[in-house]
């Protein structure tokens, strides 16, 4: 059961990673990347490392996304 849940999470991770690469809209890519971090945070927690999970949630899903959004706001929204 837990193995199946792991596999679902890994599948979502890969899907998110591919989506980030394929998305030309940088705003959308930032949001998807934040989702990726959130799923990765779950994976860390399930793997028994709450420290890393906390860092991933705070830095990966929180701060990095905001910084990406600010960067997109200051430059252009489309990938060229």
């Amino acid at each position: 059961m837990s193995r199946a849940f792991d596999l679902v999470l890994y599948g979502l991770l890969i899907a998110c990673a591919l989506a980030v690469i394929r998305t030309k809209d940088l705003l959308a890519a930032s949001i998807i990347f934040s989702t990726y971090s959130l799923i990765l945070c779950l994976v860390w927690q399930l793997r028994g490392s709450p420290d890393v999970a906390l860092t991933e949630a705070a830095v990966g899903a929180g701060v990095t996304t905001v910084l990406f959004l600010v960067a997109v706001a200051r430059t252009s929204r489309r990938e060229r």
């Binding site: 420290d51 906390l54 701060v63």
Partner: peptide, 24 residues
């Protein structure tokens, strides 16, 4: 998290990032 970080999960960096996110 910062104060109790040496005996529970979490620690200075996690707690600091949370305050930083609050400032943002």
């Amino acid at each position: 998290q910062i104060i109790n970080g040496h005996s529970t999960p979490g620690g200075g960096f996690q707690g600091g990032t949370i305050i930083g996110a609050l400032l943002i």
